[in-house]
Amino acid sequence: MPAKGIAILGSGIFATEAHLPAIATLGDAIELKAVYSRSNKSASTFAQSAQDVLKLTHTPDVYHDEDPAVSLDKLLARSDIFAVIVVLPITVQPKVILKALAAGKHVLSEKPVAPDVSQGRALIKEYESKYKSHGLVWRVAENFEAEPGYRAARRAIEDGKIGKVTFYNACVVNYIDENSKWYNTPWRTVPDYQGGFLHTIASLRVVLPSALQTVSAFASLAKDILPPQDTINAIVKNADGSHGLVELTWGAPTVTRAKQAGNNITVTGTEGWLEITRASGVMRIAVHTITRDKDGKSTGETEEVIEEKEVGIQREIESFLRATDGSDDGVDDPRSTLVDVAFIEAALNSNGAPVDLVALAKV
């Protein structure tokens, strides 16, 4: 069977450092035929990187906005391209997603689903009413939702290893300065659609057995270079009555504050607890379970360690490709990823008042 032709729209850091290596692991399943960026220079540079990483015999065809003969519309008109991966700035992604769908292409678009909840709802409604019924697949590339480590943690909870979930904590404390490659990119400097913030919420959404229901939060700017807000502290209640604390910041004053924060997720239940940590591309899940004697009295605890390599981007692309073949596992469905945007939007605007996430994210 010949490889399916795809195009990548966008030529930034994440397209280069994340998507190309992930595609390289897929072998002959897909073929990168074209790339698009707004400028000829960025598109051409990315095409060369793609040739090197994917070991192609020639560079993918280059499309950009500087010449109408090689515009995005021309790329989307090609019959040999069945799907596009959209890795463009979030402010332009909704328009491009709809343009690609209208051209009959399947779409995998980088997180978030949209810049805000309102646009996300509108985009999902238009997709479901106009394109989904025609067999076109649109998925939002939230790689943490596809990570085997988070899914392993969820299975441990579903298997009863920590009993009924009672409370949880999520801590992400990061340091960023003007020298960071992420500085001034919208993924980090605009918290409404900040990749790191969204990742944590997606992780909780995968790991916890019950939906995030209500959030009460305060948000602030800790570091002047990261306006408008870089820090969120939230209290969350889930549908099953469990609750948690979520601490998110890119505004650590020093590197040591971030390094010593113990960035992790812990989930505590009636029969134990588990901790999820990440280091050097590996996710470690330590599951602690109460041991009991024949009378049910606690006699101590056991620890089980599960380690999974971080391969979420590869897994999300594989899931997307299966969905285009009619085998949908539900990973990265736009409706589910809208919850992540709703959480951040709610937390930024809560000022301590409870916000109903279910109502906010309802399409």
Rank of each mutant, 00 (worst) to 15 (best):
R139W: 02
L208K: 06
H134M: 02
D224H: 03
A122Y: 07
K223T: 13
T166H: 08
Q194K: 09
A103R: 07
A202S: 15
I124L: 10
E126Y: 00
S129H: 11
L221H: 05
E126W: 01
G104T: 03
Y183E: 12
A114R: 02
A156N: 04
D159Y: 01
S109F: 02
G149F: 08
F218L: 05
L108W: 00
S109L: 02
V207R: 00
G104E: 03
G195E: 11
L108H: 02
L212H: 06
P112V: 05
I162D: 05
D116S: 05
I157D: 00
N169H: 14
E110T: 04
E142V: 11
S109D: 11
K105I: 06
R154T: 00
Y150D: 01
K164I: 08
P209V: 00
N169G: 09
S210T: 05
P112C: 04
D116Y: 00
Y183D: 12
E110R: 08
A114M: 06
E126L: 03
I176H: 02
E147C: 10
Y193V: 06
L226E: 10
K105Q: 07
L136E: 02
D177I: 13
R121C: 04
T189W: 14
Y127K: 07
S210L: 03
N179E: 14
A102C: 00
R139A: 02
D177T: 12
V113D: 07
A152T: 12
A156I: 06
K99S: 09
Y183M: 15
Y175N: 06
V113K: 06
S203K: 10
E128S: 08
G104V: 11
R154A: 04
L98D: 03
A211V: 07
L108S: 01
T185H: 12
E145I: 00
G135N: 06
I162H: 09
R154H: 11
V117R: 09
D116R: 02
S216A: 15
N179F: 10
P209W: 00
I201A: 01
V165G: 03
A122G: 10
K111D: 01
T200K: 13
G160N: 08
R188N: 13
T200N: 13
H199R: 11
R155N: 12
S216K: 15
P115Y: 08
A114H: 08
G120P: 03
E147F: 03
Y131C: 08
E128I: 07
L212Q: 08
T214N: 09
I201W: 09
G135W: 00
S203P: 00
P191G: 06
V173Q: 10
Q213W: 01
P112Q: 07
L198I: 15
T166K: 15
E158N: 12
G195L: 13
R188Y: 15
F144A: 12
R139P: 03
A141T: 00
D159T: 01
F167V: 04
F167W: 14
T214S: 07
V207A: 04
K161A: 13
Y168V: 05
A102Q: 13
W182S: 14
N143W: 09
H134A: 13
E142T: 05
V107W: 10
S118C: 04
E110F: 11
R151S: 01
S180D: 15
S210A: 15
W187T: 14
K223G: 01
